[in-house]
Write a protein that binds this DNA or RNA. Structure first.
Lengths: 229, 229
DNA sequence: GCAAAAGTGTTTTCATTACACCCATGT
DNA sequence: ACATGGGTGTAATGAAAACACTTTTGC
């Protein structure tokens, strides 16, 4: 086998596009690389896959190192394997995205990163390796999935207002939605539970708080309900 | 590192689910394995990825070896990497599917296969490794994509009748479609060209022949047309 | 009392569904 | 002449889109 004795001999890695939502903006968790190649540049968090670790576990491990959290929505998107995508040799990478609630985590630097930060996705202009392309492939997939599965809630705090949910959809889909139609549609699905609890300390009429009701959703699904925005 | 000195030490491969359509049935091209493990069993055609070959090329190479053809619709679906998916060590495999016109090709055995055959997808009950699962992941993806992109034509001869097209959709989606509504929808898209040519030698009124007009489709797409069945 | 976002229904428009009979050909 | 699939239109239904004003709070 070729490359038998090289460190970077055909290796595979996982990269994880970690999405979060804050202040009406979709964000991505990036690291600043400590080492060459691309030292000092922003990149997606990723890691070489250990021979005794499943791919999904590898992606979760990366996330766990940066945030300490364990249970998150994770989805495999695509595998990038161009021969020359890594300057040091053949590295095939499996791209994942995760959805997390920014307010629930505190990020911390990891061994492979010098700095870790949430970046607004719309302001990112380039990344190390082919990570910019990877990020966009994941965003594209997220756009598709968020319309067909109730995963948007993964990005919001446990309790949220309907307007927050709408803003989330608008920022991911990059299109404005009609307030009345959006609320009508979501509420008619019957997959939210509401509380007798209101938003606090806002300088306007406070909004009602809701949360996603996974049980109701499962029941509805049994009966043939199909989520669609 | 485990598997350090074995041939199968962390390797990656591609597997290609090659779909074809014949006699109102969706089929898949399978090989019968010559060697252990799983010698004598049916499996998806696949190969180890050479270090100097892109993943897509790897998938096309497999197809080319079995059929001799080169230009086909190819799509990456998912990467399977469970630690124990291969009995001889860690092998991560990238799954693709291809769509080909059965009538255009003659299949031939390849070095790694003892026999190569088109099998009706509905009659396949098990495959070597985790190939059954892989095949179904690809079928699921095909079902999704065929509704959103004009790729069904890849499975039909250059010229086809509307009923053939409908049967193709019905067999992939596993649901019956209304003849009048189907024709209305397809024809209203304006992405087919028709010929003054009819089906020959059938014991009923001969049907008109159509083919997919890629140019018209591209033009329509520019103007915002979105294919959807 | 003013600014700011919450909350709420009705009408119009368009796409989807359901449905049945005559036509052209081979045997 | 009969069997077989080809070809065609209209009405009913339901989902999506468009649209504007009143309410509640903090300051």
């Amino acid at each position: 086998m070729p490359f038998q004795n090289e460190i970077y001999k055909s290796a595979f890695s996982v990269d994880n596009v970690i999405f979060g939502f804050e202040g009406q903006n979709l964000k991505v968790l990036l690291i600043r690389r400590k080492d060459e190649p691309f030292a000092g540049q922003w990149a997606l968090p990723g890691d070489i896959v250990q021979p005794d670790r499943d791919l999904d576990e590898g992606a979760l491990h990366v996330l766990n190192q940066l945030t300490g959290i364990e249970n998150v929505y994770l989805e495999q998107v695509h595998t990038f394997g161009k021969v020359d995508r890594h300057p040091r040799g053949r590295v095939i990478t499996v791209a994942y995205y995760s959805l997390i609630k920014i307010s629930d985590v505190t990020i911390r630097a990891a061994s492979f990163a010098d700095k870790v930060e949430w970046k607004e996705i719309r302001k990112i202009e380039s990344l190390a390796f082919d990570h910019f392309e990877i990020m966009h492939a994941c965003l594209k997939r997220l756009r598709l999935n968020i319309k067909l599965r109730p995963i948007g809630f993964e990005l919001l705090p446990e309790k949220f207002t309907l307007t927050e949910l709408q803003k989330l959809y608008e920022s991911i889909l990059e299109q404005d939605l009609d307030k009345r139609n959006f609320r009508k549609k979501i509420l008619s699905m019957n997959i939210l539970k509401s509380f007798n609890e209101m938003q606090q300390g806002v300088a306007h009429r406070p909004a009602k708080l809701y949360s996603f009701d996974a049980e109701k959703y499962e029941e509805a699904k049994e009966k043939g309900f199909i989520f669609e925005i």
